[in-house]
Structure formats: structure tokens, C-alpha cells
Amino acid sequence: MADKILKKDKAAEALKELSKFRLFAPAKSDDVVLFRQIEDPAEACLDYANSTVPPKKVVFPQTETLFRFKLGNPELREKNVEEEGTTVIFGLRPCDARAMSIVDNLFSWDYEDPYYLKRRELTTLVGMACVTPPSVNCFCASVGGEPFGTENLDLLLVDMGEEYLVKVLTDKGGKLAETIGSFMENAPEGAAAKAEELAGAAREALSRSIDTSGIEAKLPALWDSPLWKEVSAACLGCGICTYLCPTCHCFDIQDEVEDAEGRRCRMWDSCMFREYTLHASGHNPRPTRKERTRNRISHKYSYFPGKFGVIACVGCGRCVNLCPVNIDILEILGKVVEA
């Protein structure tokens, strides 16, 4: 399908139309932007930098039921993800969309994870290109992304000032575009070229970068390096860097019972927590934050690429922006390169 134009004053109507699906869009709560299920287009905030919590939570909810049961009854009732129906994530950043394609590797290797994959199948991703980098700590271009990246997106919106240029990237995107076709018009000649120009400028505007070549091989060799103690000294051991990472995917499984009914559910977990690896015997293979930090970096930049051929980091900068003590993954990687 040819490129379209969605005038900004029509955006609300388009969102209204899309809200017949399960529609997630960035919305403001106080000063925090989070992806929320939107019923009223007025809640959406499309003029935003980036969401604090990545939209991974739509396809990989922080807590989700795997199956339900009644005590004393052997029947296990599987959660039916299909029931959630068609889902649209509107206005996500290209890095966050790319992150989902990275996580897809994990959830589909060997055993297929039915919950995640079904949700991915049901979800259409409508991206919002980064005309200006959302933060000084964006470094998507260093890890295979682009401010105008289209990877894994079904539609890409480019903010051209008065209007959005809508690029249709997949059939799924095409179908979605049709449902809001009446609010859009054909893109005038030159719009694509203007978008190209903006893309180039956005790429130029990225202020941080890292040369990742060689890091994958180098990390295992730095196992005993003193650098890990140095970079983890300030670490508080909280879950910010992992929970807010669009590619982090570790989870815990717990059973919950309320009266005679129960469920087995899974919830995000973080390798930065002490309990994460703690054995029942009291032994902990990663006894301090030093080992946990080493694991976090190594997993993203060495183990994951070793297994799936892609770095498990999209350069969104959240872990740098939001770390309470300014632990900076680019600084750590810089030290790895230098070491």
C-alpha cells in the first residue's frame, strides 16, 4: 500500500476507531508516560519522548495467568489468550518494536511459548518514528536499530509537523490502515523524501554510541576482571534496569490460591535480585551484585548473541536514564572495549 497521511486533527478520530480493538497507546499519569489501554482518545499522548515502562508489557504482561484450577479437582483450565482479541499498540518507538523481535527468538526456540506467541500474533504494532531522539542516552544505531527503524513494525508513523506520514510495512499493517482509511489521505509527492531527510537528521542527532564489534567474544574473557567490582559498586540491586528493559524477559512462576480457587501465574523477575538464583540450600551461585551485574551485561552482549545472533539490547537508554545511581551500560561497555 502506498504511503498515507494522517492529519493530526484526525488522529483522535482514528484512535477512536482503533479503540474497538484492544488499543494501547502512550498516556500520561502525572509526569510519567506509560502504555495504557485506551478507550478515550483524549487519554493518549502521542507527543511524547518515550514511555517509562516499555510496551513489552502488552505482549508479556508483568503478571499473567498460565492456568487456573480448583483445589481438589484435577482439571487445569488453560488461560485462553485468543479471547483477548485483536490488539493494537499505537505509537511505540521503533526500538521497542525491534526489542519484541529480539525477544521472539527466546520465546520460540525449542519449546514454543504459547502465551507470548499467541499475543504477538494478535498484536499489530504501529510505530512512531523518533524525529528527535527521546533522550540523550539513546544509542539505537549502535546496536542495529534506527530512529526511523521499521523492523518488526506493521505501520510506521512519522511526525511531519502538521500531520503524520503513515508507512504501511506489512499486510497486517495494511489491514489496520484500511480500518482507519477514511481518516487518511494519500501522501503527496515528496513526503517520503522529506521523511528520509528527517530520518537522516534524527540519526545525526543521536549523541551516544558504542562500537559493539568484538564485545561478544571479549566478555567471557573478562570473567575475572576487576572492572565488574568497579562498575557494580554503587548498584542497589533493584529491578529498574531489567524491568524497564524492553528485551529483558526473565520470569518467575508462582501459584496463588484464593479460597478454593487457584492459578499458576508468571511474573517478571530480575536477575539483579538476590533471590533470583538463591538455592533452597542457601547457596547462591551469584552471591553479590558484582556477579549479577556481570551476568546482566554478559547476557545481553554475549550469551544472547551467542545463542540467537543478535544483541539483547536496543539502545533505548532507559536503564541509563532511570538508574538511581547512574550505572551506565555504555560506560561499562566502554570499559569492556578498553580492557
Binding site: 503478571t63 499473567e64 495467568t65 487456573r68 484464593e258 480457587e261 492459578r263
Partner: peptide, 10 residues
Amino acid sequence: DQFKRRQLNW
């Protein structure tokens, strides 16, 4: 009904 454990999304 403020924060009773409800079977939200179970």
C-alpha cells in the same frame, strides 16, 4: 472493596 484480593484477569 479497596484492595481486597480480587480475581483480576484470572
